[in-house]
């Protein structure tokens, strides 16, 4: 574990806490893409299959349980909670995310570290995570003004993988044969997808104005 990876995991945890806070405090999920939340639940389920078979550390196990439980709880909340589900922007959240699932799964069949179910699902979860934010970014562009908590949620979500890139650079420099091409390349693409959001988020912060993404 290094400071970059710890910062990344804590930022990721913070993004989930901000999202839970937004939904719990406002009893609303307006501006949140259910499709992105479903993709994240799939990412964690596909990636943490080794939860019960490979023990890495107490920290690793606890974080995996927290990520799986929170992502499923958010999907449940947006689909079934009587009060919250009414505020879901169903007509705005129209990104065809099944193409993202299919495309990344095929890519994982072709590009993986080993042709085993667990490795294919791990690569699938890495590729899917890279594009999972797309329905959310599209929804933000369509819904015009973005409420603060939603903006912070997306910002921390993008920032966490940027910390992981620093972690991979650090591990590459300090560990003799450290190479994680699938995670590294996918992580760079993932962080790149947030580039325009980061730009508009910075502008809104500098001008102290409401975050607005151009349609």
């Amino acid at each position: 574990m290094n400071i970059f990876r710890l910062a990344g995991d804590m930022t990721h945890l913070l993004s989930i806490i901000v999202l839970l806070l937004k939904i719990y405090a406002t009893k609303s999920c307006s501006g949140i893409s259910l499709k992105t939340q479903e993709l994240y639940a799939l990412v964690f389920l596909a990636r943490y299959l080794d939860l019960f078979t490979d023990f890495i550390s107490v920290y690793n196990t606890i974080m995996k349980v927290v990520f799986i439980a929170s992502s499923l709880a958010i999907v449940w909340c947006m689909r079934l909670h009587p009060l919250v589900k009414r505020s879901y922007d169903k007509e705005l959240d129209t990104f065809r995310h099944y193409f993202l699932i299919g495309g990344t799964f095929v890519l994982a069949l072709v590009l993986n570290e080993k042709f085993t179910l667990q490795e294919i699902l791990w690569a699938f979860s890495i590729y899917l995570e890279a594009v999972a934010i797309l329905p959310q970014l599209v929804l933000l562009q369509r819904s015009g003004n973005v409420d603060n908590l939603t903006g912070q949620y997306v910002f921390f979500l993008g920032a966490y993988r940027a910390f992981y890139i620093l972690n991979w650079i650090y591990r590459y420099l300090t560990e003799p044969r450290f190479t994680r091409w699938i995670a590294c390349v996918s992580g760079i693409v993932q962080t790149g997808i947030y580039a325009d959001f980061f730009y508009y988020y910075f502008i809104s912060w500098k001008n102290n104005s409401k975050l607005k993404l151009p349609a």
Binding site: R5, D50, N60, F67, E113, E119, Y164, T179, R180
Partner: peptide
């Protein structure tokens, strides 16, 4: 065959 990388990251 070659072993895959250890999945020690979240």
């Amino acid at each position: 065959g070659h072993s895959s990388s250890p999945k020690d990251e979240l």
